[in-house]
Structures are given as structure tokens and as C-alpha cells.
């Protein structure tokens, strides 16, 4: 008997633990009967809710961005830098630098805030060959980094446009050699991200070669998530880290 107890006790307790855990989860979704039958009392004013989004969140300087916001139970709504706005609306803005759009909604039930951030990249500088510009400064001004979507190495539309401009710059500066670094955001496994970063840098190289840049002028190194540009755990920061980044090769 003692022996049976010794074996059965842990087994049954273990199974029961799982069973109870499972049950707990299920019960969570069921409303308590008490609440259903509770008599209605005068409800306090509902707390306002607010949401704001920007599309796209990554633009070149001079590009337009559409802000979308929606609130409930709010009397006055304002956005920093814009002023008072309708409780729900759409507005097109042209940020000149990276900007956080911060929305405050006030209602009888309190105040709530929401914000979204738009990252603005500098436009490609008009390339004016001057004697004062070093090759490095010139390349920095003339070659833009290309950005990628989550867990992919496909060249998306904005990156294709950037890489076309990069290719024409390189074609007109045949003395320059470049290294393309492949970078990833912090999510996922570092070994896999090194392979993914390699695929991103290889894809950027292929786009340049297709556009007429000699393959032997381009080296590729993957940095995965080993050398991030931005350390925060935000969608904006992740986007900045998913890139093919250029440096001059010496």
C-alpha cells in the first residue's frame, strides 16, 4: 500500500496540476453569474480611449504622412504641434524631421494619451562634386541604406528606388568600392539572423549589379543583430535595424 501510494501520489498530483491549470484557463473566459444578475447602478462616466497611427512610419524628407486617429468618450482632442482636432479624423502632414505625434483626449471619465512616431530619412543630397568633400563624405551623401520588412530579404518598393539611386551614384563614381552590411532587428535567433542579414545584403548587391555596378566593387558582410543601429524594442527601431547598410571599402 505504501509503495502504491509512493508511485501514485506524484503521478496523480502532476496530472491534477495540469488538469487544474487547464480548468483555470477555461473558467477565466466564463462570466461570473453574480455579475450577470447584479442590478444596474448608475455607471460612472466611461474613460476615454484613443488611438493614433501614421502611414507610413518611415519616409524621406519632403514625403507626406497620413495621420489617423480615433477616440471614444472624449470631449476635446488635441495633437501636439497641430492643436485641437476632431475626436476622430485624418490629416496629412509633411514632417521635416523624425517626429512623435502625441495625442491627448479628455473626457468626463478622464484623460488618455496616445502617440505614434514617424522616422524621416534625409533625402539624397544633390551631388555637387566639390574639392572640399572627401570621398567618404560624398559617398555618405550619395548612397542611401535600403530597408526591409520583418523576417524577409525581398527588396520592397522604397528600397528598390533607393538602390537605383545608389547604383547611378556608384556608376558615376567608378573609383569607389563599397561594403554592404546586412542587419536585422533584435527579434528571433542570432544565428538565423546572421544568415538572414547575409541574404538581405546579397539581395541589395544583386540589385546594384543588375543596375550596372561591377560585382567586384561590392563586398558583403552580415552583422545580423550583432551591431544594431538602434537599441529600443519598438517597431520604429526594429525597422531602422532591418537594413542593407553601406560603407566605403578601402
Amino acid at each position: 500500500m505504501n509503495r502504491i501510494n509512493r508511485i501514485v501520489t506524484p503521478v496523480v498530483l502532476f496530472v491534477a496540476l495540469i488538469a487544474l491549470a487547464g480548468c483555470g484557463n477555461n473558467n477565466k473566459n466564463r462570466p461570473l453569474p453574480l455579475e450577470e444578475s447584479a442590478p444596474a447602478v448608475t455607471a460612472p462616466a466611461a474613460a476615454p480611449t484613443a488611438q493614433i497611427t501614421a502611414t507610413p512610419t518611415l519616409v524621406m524628407k519632403g514625403d507626406q504622412v497620413q495621420l489617423n486617429w480615433r477616440t471614444t468618450d472624449a470631449n476635446t482632442v488635441s495633437i501636439d504641434g497641430i492643436g485641437e482636432v476632431p475626436t476622430t479624423g485624418v490629416k496629412t502632414v509633411t514632417p521635416t524631421e523624425s517626429t512623435s505625434y502625441h495625442l491627448v483626449a479628455k473626457g468626463d471619465g478622464g484623460t488618455v494619451e496616445a502617440s505614434t512616431r514617424v522616422t524621416v530619412n534625409l533625402p539624397p543630397a544633390v551631388v555637387v562634386p566639390t574639392t572640399t568633400m572627401s570621398a567618404e563624405q560624398e559617398a555618405k551623401a550619395g548612397i542611401q541604406d535600403a530597408f526591409f520588412d520583418y523576417d524577409t530579404y525581398d527588396i520592397r518598393g522604397d528600397a528598390q528606388a533607393i538602390l537605383s539611386r545608389d547604383a547611378s551614384f556608384l556608376v558615376s563614381h567608378p573609383e569607389l568600392k563599397v561594403v554592404i552590411g546586412g542587419y536585422c532587428d533584435e527579434r528571433g535567433s542570432s544565428e538565423y539572423n546572421l544568415a538572414l542579414g547575409q541574404s538581405r545584403a546579397d539581395a541589395a548587391k544583386a540589385a546594384l549589379v543588375t543596375a550596372g555596378v561591377a560585382a567586384n566593387r561590392i563586398r558583403v558582410i552580415s552583422y545580423g543583430k550583432e551591431k544594431p543601429f538602434c537599441a529600443e524594442s519598438t517597431e520604429e527601431c526594429w525597422q531602422l535595424n532591418r537594413r542593407a547598410g553601406f560603407t566605403l571599402d578601402r
Binding site: V12, A16, A19, L20, G22, C23
Partner: peptide, 10 residues
């Protein structure tokens, strides 16, 4: 008994 009941419910 208690845990067996819990199992049955689950």
C-alpha cells in the same frame, strides 16, 4: 477524490 473530480471536469 478531489483531483479525480478535477480531471473529470477538465
Amino acid at each position: 477524490f478531489f483531483v479525480l473530480t478535477a480531471l473529470a471536469i477538465c
